[in-house]
């Protein structure tokens, strides 16, 4: 555990000691700010009944931000260490493969959570301008952030996996972007396909990440979705561990 914590600290430190961490935060702030201001302009003066979190988070913007930033956050996880050679000193220290994988994942996820945190402030801005404290249901907000964290963990795990495959950050970013976009496109596809028409439709509906975010942003926690994200994350972390381990027998 100490080892994992030390590694996570180092990972997080890495973001804030290099430009990339700030670039990611600034990019998220800008993109989210853009969507936020855009929504404010659109909704200004028009009565709304959907929860604030749904209006402002379950949007296409969210996906654009996630799809762009997830690779930026995760690409360095393994690829950077491999290309600078520190991977050798890391792996010749007495650390387990799982410890390394979990720490990399934990570091990226912690950074991901940090990136989204300032945006809570936006909700308070909305609340201020509606002049109605009931606009913001703290439980729905908590549900939304829980959902964002779950979705984030799947995307971070995919990114870590992509990063573990190569020593080039660019390739890692491209690969994890493709994985992420693939999942997203599946959920777009499910919107255009009837779940009743075939088993495929039902599967697509089950894996529709867009759908899930809608539910989370309404304050609904569905065990199916939680299980989906947890198992998805576990799957990619498992693959990552296998890749890391393969160094010792390949």
């Amino acid at each position: 555990m100490n080892v994992i914590l030390a590694l996570i600290r180092r990972e997080l430190g890495g973001y804030f000691k290099s430009l990339i961490g700030y670039v990611v935060i600034a990019a998220v702030l800008f993109l989210f700010g853009f969507s936020f201001v855009d929504m404010l302009g659109k909704l200004n003066g028009i009565p709304q009944d959907a929860p604030v979190t749904e209006q402002f988070y379950a949007t296409v913007y969210f996906w654009v931000i996630l799809l762009i930033t997830a690779p930026m956050i995760t690409m360095r996880a393994f690829a950077l260490e491999k290309s600078t050679g520190t991977y050798e000193s890391l792996m010749t220290a007495p650390v387990g493969d799982w410890q390394v994988v979990l720490a990399k994942f934990g570091g990226t996820l912690a950074f991901f959570a940090l990136v989204w945190l300032p945006l809570l402030g936006c909700l308070f801005i909305i609340r201020h301008f509606t002049g109605d404290p009931a606009t913001l249901d703290p439980r729905v907000t908590a549900g939304t952030f829980f959902g964002i964290l779950l979705i984030g963990s799947l995307y971070m795990a995919m990114g870590c996996f992509a990063s573990s495959l190569t020593r080039s950050q660019i390739i890692a970013a491209i690969f994890s972007f493709l994985l992420g976009v693939g999942l997203f496109v599946l959920s777009l596809r499910s919107a255009a396909l009837s779940p009743s028409e075939s088993g495929w439709g039902a599967v697509l509906d089950y894996t529709s990440v867009m759908r899930h975010l809608f539910d989370f942003s309404r304050g609904i926690i569905d065990t199916r979705q939680v299980v989906f994200y947890l198992t998805g994350t576990a799957f990619f972390l498992y693959l990552t561990q296998r890749v890391v381990e393969s160094r010792r027998w390949k």
Binding site: L40, P47, Q48, D49, D132, A134
Partner: peptide, 13 residues
């Protein structure tokens, strides 16, 4: 249903 309306002046926007 809780209905709410955002009221921002152009300056605030």
């Amino acid at each position: 249903i809780h209905e709410y309306t955002l009221r921002l002046t152009p300056t605030q926007l």
